[in-house]
């Protein structure tokens, strides 16, 4: 199954892991210690994060070090920007619509058209 960054951040635990790693490279065990969920659960989340490229794990001696690749998150901000552009245009359109004068009801202005019949 192909992974992508949207899937990665859909889960609150994974978002917490990214936040934790955002400022620092950390040993995998230290990361796991920060969470109340089980080690296998942390491993599962880490697997998804690495598969989508948000986290890389490198082996140094006996330790697995985790670090984030936050550039991948621009995929998300780009996506949200698309909607920002879309809604900005919509709100502009609403503004134009609101400024238009009220469409005038066709008004019945006169009475019956009168014909004068000239009597001879």
């Amino acid at each position: 199954m192909r992974r992508d960054v949207f899937q990665a951040i859909a889960d609150p635990n994974r978002r917490a892991i990214i936040n934790l790693l955002a400022g620092q490279k950390m040993n995998l065990n230290s990361v796991a210690d920060q969470f109340e969920i089980s080690r296998p659960a942390v491993s599962k989340h880490m697997k998804i994060l690495t598969e989508c490229g948000l986290v890389t794990i490198t082996l140094q001696g006996r330790d697995h070090y985790c670090e984030t690749n936050l550039k991948k998150l621009t995929e998300v901000t780009d996506w949200i920007d698309t909607f920002k552009v879309f809604w900005t245009k919509k709100l502009d359109a609403l503004g134009d619509f609101l400024e238009k004068p009220e469409p005038e009801e066709p008004q019945y202005t006169g009475g019956v058209m009168k014909f004068k019949i000239k009597k001879k």
């Binding site: 949200i80 698309t82 879309f86």
Partner: peptide
Amino acid sequence: VLTHEGLETIPGTDYPRDSFNGGW
């Protein structure tokens, strides 16, 4: 105030995001 929530949850898998952008 217009709020659009949950955009980040849209899964990318099997989803034609680029062509969708073009469509918009």
